[in-house]
């Protein structure tokens, strides 16, 4: 569901499987715990392994954006599919400048 890697002050969370309201809550708990402990300069959410996402994924990204701002770091979102991008685009997430 989520594996994290910390290198050069960057925390990367490799998300996998299906992201819905149920799994988003679990991902949020483990990513936030890692970010609070490591205090990275950048949190990178990697969607490469994500096979399904509903709008819970948007809440997950927006929540991590706010969380990283509080911790004084930034957020990057990458390797998402076209289907996932379609939901991101509906949310106005693009204006945050986090999509790569």
């Amino acid at each position: 569901m989520v594996e994290t890697e910390y290198k050069n002050n960057v925390l990367t969370a490799y998300l996998s499987g299906e992201i819905d309201h149920d799994s988003a809550a679990k991902i949020r708990t483990s990513v936030d715990a890692a970010a609070q402990t490591l205090n990275p300069r950048l949190l990178c959410l990697d969607f490469k392994g994500v096979s399904f996402m509903d709008s819970s994924g948007v809440g997950l990204v927006m929540g991590r954006y706010r969380q990283m701002k509080l911790l004084g770091g930034g957020l990057q979102v990458k390797n998402y599919s076209d289907g996932i991008y379609r939901i991101f685009a509906m949310s106005g997430l693009e204006s945050l400048g986090v999509l790569r």
């Binding site: 949020r28 709008s55 819970s56 809440g59 927006m62 949310s91």
Partner: peptide, 10 residues
């Protein structure tokens, strides 16, 4: 609860 408010729009 980090709901984006996009359910019906999606």
């Amino acid at each position: 609860e980090e709901r984006a408010g996009l359910g019906f729009a999606v």
